[in-house]
Structures are given as C-alpha cells and as structure tokens.
Computed example of a mutant assay.
Amino acid sequence: MGGKSSSSLPPQLVDKPWLQMEWGGRGNDLQFIKDYTPKADGQQQFRILLHGPVGAGKSSFINSVISSLEGRISVRAGVCNSNQGTYTKQYKTYRIQIGNQGNMSPLVLNDMMGLENVPRRHRRVHVKDVEKAMKGHIKDGYIFNPENSLSETDNFYNKTPKVNDKVHVLVSVIDASKVHLLPDKVVEKIQDIRDDATDLGIPHMVILTKIDEACPEIKKDLKNVCRSSLLQKRVLCFSKLVGIPENCIFPVKNYHSERNVDNDIDALVLNTLRRIIEIGDEHLKNQERI
C-alpha cells in the first residue's frame, strides 16, 4: 500500500492494513443513507442512542454526521472543551434534513449526559437512565439529575413508548487517545449498559473518536488510520475491556476545527453510519421473524 516497504514505514504504521476502508466509496455510502427507509412494522424512525464518558465526542459526532449528510459544517449540537466537564445536560433528539426540499431522514440521533466517574454508590444512576432511554421511556428535553434516575411520575417519563420512541442501536462513544486510561468505574458502567442492551435485544457498537490525537501518523494523513498500530492496539484494548467484537468498533475523526467539509473525514463518518444502519436493520428484520 503506497509502494513503501515495511522497513521504510514509521514505527506507528504496519505494512498491511488491519482496517479495510474504501476511501472512494463516500458517494455510495451517502446514497445508501439517503435512500434508507425503516422496514419494520409501524416504524418511521431509526433511533441511534449515543452514550459514553464526558468529553468523548458524542455531540461532535452528531455534528459530524449532520455535516457529512448536509454538505456543510454544522454546530447544531453544542460542544465544549473536554476540560470543562459535560456540556450536554438533557436528553435531546437530532433530526437530519436530506436534500433541499425539506425532507427529513428517518435517522434520529439522541445525545445524553456523559458518564461521570462518580462514587460507587451512585454507579447505577446513569445506567438506569440509559436503560429507560433504550426502552423509549424518556421524553425529549429531560434534564438529567446526577442524584436520581428519572421517576415514573415525572412529566418527562413516557409510560407507553411506541416503536419509534425506542432505541434501535446503542453506540458507545470513546476517546481513542484515552481508552487505556478509562477508570474502572466507567468501564463497569459501559459493561452494565451493554448487558442491558443485550437483554433488550438492542445491538451495541462503539465509535473511537479523536483518532488523530491517538496517533501522530493519523494526524499527518487520515488515511493512515488503516495502518496505525497504535490505533489497532486501542481497538483491541477496548474490545477486551468491554467484551465487544473488534468488527463492531469503528474509528472516526470528528469535525472540530475544520471550516469546510473534507472528503476523508466524510468517508469515515458515512461508512460508520452505514454500518450502524445495516447492523440495526438486520436486527429489526430478525425480530420480525421471531
């Protein structure tokens, strides 16, 4: 790849790509996403729930998806410096416009408060709220309470969720540069949430963000993501930590400082979004057969 021998490669890169990526497939992925229609009975929306540690890039990924699909940089989801703590306080749904006719995509993305590294006695608080969100019990606009999970008597509790209210794919968003530094309590929370998703029959996927911060060679050229030994180690590390297959972990570079859309960033974002749709749609079809 690139005509270089393994001896001339930087030590952070391997000669044979460990990640298969069609950089020229951006147009096909974009068309697939634009053409996608949920096929399950009564379903008009395909809901993707994002969760993960504070500052991992959940809101930035939402902005990146919107930017890649709408063809212009979006900052619709508010973000802040990760050193300032969590910016997202409420459960919020983001919908995406397709084309110039005002048509809305069936894809909806839900953002929620980050998983804090709180004392063990509070460990289940966010896990309970994530479970309720997956079941479709949390209404848009609910402000998360660090001390208590959403009560069934709260006005933001949806007592009778329909298929469009429920989550169809759970996505953990993790900072690739900090995978090996995740506190045990945060790992336990992610494992608990993964267990809940499995019990509910919801597929679980992982997005590794900030890959350019994890590997200097990726920062030089985003296409080096396919051969970065450092990133491969982070994928293996998280796979072992949580018990999720490597082929369900996707590296992504979010839009952050860019002022215009970039084909390579779009390619990674759109390919990941396509795989999320394909895995979730396959699961929905299997459920209908049961």
Score class of each variant (00 low, 15 high):
Pro146Arg: 04
Asp154Glu: 08
Asn148Leu: 05
Glu131Thr: 08
Ile98Asn: 12
His122Leu: 10
Met113Gly: 06
Asn148Val: 05
Gly102Cys: 13
Arg121Ser: 08
Asn117Phe: 00
Met112Leu: 13
Gln97Gly: 13
Val108Gly: 12
Phe156Gln: 05
Arg124Leu: 13
Pro106Ile: 04
Phe156Ser: 06
Met113Val: 07
Glu131Phe: 00
Asn103Leu: 13
Ile138Thr: 07
Met104His: 03
Ser151Val: 01
Ile143Ser: 06
Gln97Asp: 15
Asp129Ile: 05
Ile138Tyr: 02
Ile143Val: 04
Lys128His: 07
His122Asp: 15
Lys135Gly: 01
Asn110Ile: 04
Leu107Met: 14
Asp154Val: 01
Ser151Asp: 12
Asp154His: 03
Asp111Cys: 10
Asn145Arg: 00
Asp154Gln: 02
Pro119Lys: 06
Asp129Arg: 06
Asn155Thr: 12
Arg123Tyr: 07
His122Gln: 14
Pro119Ser: 03
His122Thr: 09
Leu109Ile: 15
Val108Tyr: 02
Val127Leu: 05
Arg124Lys: 11
Asn103Lys: 13
Pro106Lys: 04
Asn155Gly: 09
Asp140Arg: 05
Val108Cys: 15
Phe144Pro: 05
Asn103Pro: 03
Asn148Phe: 00
Val127Ile: 14
Thr153Val: 07
Asn148Lys: 06
Leu115Ile: 11
Asp140Ala: 04
Lys128Ile: 11
Asn155Glu: 15
Asp129Pro: 11
Glu152Trp: 03
Tyr142Pro: 05
Ile143His: 05
Gly99Glu: 15
Val125Ala: 10
Ala133Leu: 06
Val125Gln: 15
His137Trp: 04
Lys132Ile: 02
Leu107Ala: 06
Glu147Val: 00
Asn117Ser: 14
Gly136Phe: 00
Ser149Ile: 01
Lys128Val: 09
Glu116His: 09
Ile98Leu: 15
Arg124Asp: 15
Met113Cys: 11
Asn100Trp: 01
Met134Gln: 04
Gly141Phe: 06
Glu152Ile: 02
Asn103His: 08
His122Ala: 04
Lys135Gln: 11
Pro119Thr: 05
Gln101Thr: 11
Asn100Gly: 09
Asn148Met: 07
Asp140Phe: 01
Gly114Phe: 00
Glu147Trp: 00
Asn110Asp: 15
Ala133Ile: 05
Pro106Glu: 06
Val118Ser: 14
Val108Arg: 12
Asn148Ala: 00
Ile98Lys: 14
Gly102Tyr: 07
Ser105Tyr: 00
Val130His: 01
Asn100Met: 12
Glu152Gln: 08
Val108Met: 14
Ser105Ala: 14
Gly102Asp: 11
Ser151Pro: 02
Ile98Ser: 11
Leu109Glu: 01
Asp111Trp: 08
Asn100Glu: 15
Ser151Asn: 08
Gly99His: 09
Asn110Leu: 07
Ser151Thr: 05
Met113His: 12
Arg121Thr: 11
Phe156Glu: 01
Asn100Thr: 13
Asn148His: 02
Val108Leu: 14
Gly136Trp: 01
Lys139Phe: 00
Leu109Arg: 02
Lys132Ala: 04
Leu150Ala: 06
Lys128Leu: 09
Asp140Gln: 08
Pro106Ala: 01
Asp129Glu: 14
